[in-house]
């Protein structure tokens, strides 16, 4: 298939993903918005008032970048696992496997859907936060780039999860037992500087810390980790996970007999 054909195919998968996200908006867009509103009310307004300032910002302002990141991570991951595993489970993944589409087109098509949902929910959460506090945008390019790279990393990770999943339980295990703890321990609600040794050093093994820190740097101009190592970690994960996904698709792991 030529370049134009690949673009048409890519657009077809992306279009299907958009339709799917909008068709089940009650499952894809609504719940994260409600959950995050509750976070803002409980942690930001009720508890946050007693905590006071963090690095010169109100607690509500401090946790907003973390909560936006948390939404992007869980929704990018969740969209990829549910959509790709759904296609596998319903066997309509075969529509794509018998076609001349190269693996990268299939991957990018699903990636676009996962990113769309992750970034849309992230924007929604950012919008909701404005109902509770005022925000500044310190560096918009860093903010956007971090959001996009984080969405890609977790969409790719979700793809690998969906490839190996055999039942619906398998796509719930990683978010519950890995993703959620790592997110909570990744500096969403606190600065790692507050942690005693050795927990502060151990926290640096958590990749989510680098993403939350870079995003907070972009929005508020403060972060736990310098931008260079943060972007190195994100780009490293994109390359590693992307190559793994292409290899899995090429070999047909979990898809072809």
């Amino acid at each position: 298939m030529n370049g134009r054909g690949n673009l048409v195919a890519l657009g077809t998968i992306a279009h299907r993903e958009v339709i799917r996200i909008l068709r089940i908006w009650g499952q894809t867009l609504m719940p994260p918005a409600i959950t995050m509103t509750l976070y803002f009310i409980i942690f930001g307004t009720l508890i946050g008032r007693r905590i006071g300032e963090m690095h010169g910002f109100s607690y509500m302002q401090y946790i907003t970048p973390g909560l936006v990141m948390m939404s992007i991570i869980t929704n990018s991951y969740g969209n990829m696992t549910s959509s790709f595993f759904g296609a596998k489970f319903g066997r309509y993944i075969e529509e794509m496997l018998v076609s001349p589409m190269p693996p990268w087109v299939i991957l990018c098509g699903y990636l676009s859907g996962a990113m769309l949902r992750g970034l849309t929910v992230g924007t929604l959460v950012l919008g909701i936060s404005l109902l509770f506090t005022h925000l500044q945008m310190h560096h918009i390019a860093i903010t956007l780039l971090t959001a996009i790279l984080t969405s890609i990393v977790f969409a790719l990770a979700g793809f690998i999860n969906a490839v190996f999943a055999r039942k619906f339980d398998d796509i719930a295990i990683i978010p519950t037992f890995v993703l959620t703890p790592l997110t909570y321990l990744g500096g969403v609600f606190y600065s790692v500087d507050m942690l005693p040794s050795p927990w502060r050093q151990i926290s640096h093994a958590n990749p989510i810390l680098y993403m939350v820190s870079a995003f907070r740097e972009g929005m508020l101009g403060i972060g736990d980790i310098a931008l260079l190592p943060s972007f190195a970690v994100m780009l490293g994960f994109v390359a590693l996970l992307g190559a793994t996904c292409i290899m899995l698709l090429r070999r047909g792991v979990g898809m072809r007999n």
Partner: peptide
Amino acid sequence: QQAGFYGIR
């Protein structure tokens, strides 16, 4: 969609 997977407009 199936046509799209084959690069057909």
